Amino acid sequence: MCRTYDGVVIDEKSASDQNLGLRELKKRQSRTAMHRAALELVNEHGLGGVTVEAIAQRAGVSTRTFFNHWSTKESAIIGITTSGGLEIGEKLRRAAEEEGPRQALRTVMREAIASAPHDVELRELKMEVMAKEPKLHSISTGNLRSVQTEMIEVLTELLDGEDARERAMLAVQIGFAVTRTAFGVSMSRGIELEAAFDEVTDRYDGVDPVF
């Protein structure tokens, strides 16, 4: 698990971390440290009592480093990086060139879930903070809609037929439903998010036609 102590970040590598390059691993550790610091501070002082400077200080980074990853203190609290939906849309386009639209959508969503913190305690802290601060829900919802809209637009371009947009909307909504379920499975059973995502996807593809 990731811990912050006197500005030092100590991270137990998960199985997925073993496949990351050193530079990307350090970036992930830094993001996790800032995300944790932001959540801890809001939990202690409330949203209005937290500044970017305080988050950076507790995480042991500079404010410049903070803004390399996050656009606002709220984005660090929620875990929304500066890339947003546009980068996800571009990743979807690139993946589709190699894998086709269907598999590309799954690949992009799996990569997104793999970048989330693996620390269950951190995810539980986020849930606690979100429950205390309703403003964060509106920000999170707005970001989610933006990402979904971008993915639908890109997928519509990639699919054939007059019903391409309708199919794209359905595919993206199913993808996010799978992702939400994977988070739930990961939390309840204590398994890694990627493993939970693969399990839920296999279940959806398999012979369990609940819907």
Rank of each mutant, 00 (worst) to 15 (best):
M109D: 08
L125F: 05
G184Q: 13
G85T: 04
A164H: 09
L193E: 05
I152P: 07
V172D: 06
T141M: 15
G46Y: 02
V172P: 08
L92Q: 10
R64F: 11
M187G: 01
K13E: 11
P117T: 01
E99R: 14
Y204I: 15
A196C: 02
E98Y: 11
D205L: 15
V108M: 08
V210D: 10
G21K: 06
D160Q: 14
I152E: 15
G142I: 12
S62M: 05
R106Y: 07
L136K: 05
V52R: 10
R3W: 09
E192H: 13
S75Q: 08
C2Q: 13
R64L: 04
V207T: 09
T181Q: 10
L86S: 10
T149K: 15
R180L: 11
V50R: 08
G60K: 03
V129I: 12
S62R: 12
K132R: 15
V8T: 10
I10Q: 10
K126Y: 15
H118Q: 14
A177H: 05
A114Q: 13
R3A: 06
S188L: 15
R31H: 07
V210T: 09
A195M: 11
A195P: 02
K91H: 14
A38E: 06
E124C: 01
A171I: 03
E74R: 13
F211W: 13
A112E: 14
E111S: 13
D205S: 04
A168G: 04
K91G: 10
N143V: 06
N143K: 08
A33N: 06
A112P: 00
A96F: 02
S140N: 12
A56R: 02
E166N: 05
I139P: 01
R28N: 11
P101V: 10
V210E: 14
L39G: 05
K13F: 03
A54M: 11
P117G: 00
Q148H: 11
S75G: 02
D208P: 06
T51R: 06
Y5W: 11
L41W: 00
L144Q: 14
T179Y: 09
S140Q: 13
I174T: 10
I77T: 13
R23D: 12
T156S: 13
F176M: 12
L20Q: 01
R165H: 14
E124A: 05
L20I: 01
E133I: 09
M34C: 03
D202P: 03
R145P: 00
L20E: 03
A33W: 02
V210L: 10
R28S: 08
V8E: 15
E162N: 07
D119L: 03
M187N: 12
V50E: 10
S138Y: 15
S140R: 14
M151N: 11
N19L: 15
V52Y: 08
P209V: 02
L136Y: 04
S138F: 14
A96G: 01
V178S: 06
V52K: 14
D11R: 11
G184D: 12
E128C: 00
F211L: 04
R36V: 10
F211I: 02
A56Q: 04
S16V: 12
S138C: 00
H45A: 15
Q57P: 01
P209A: 03
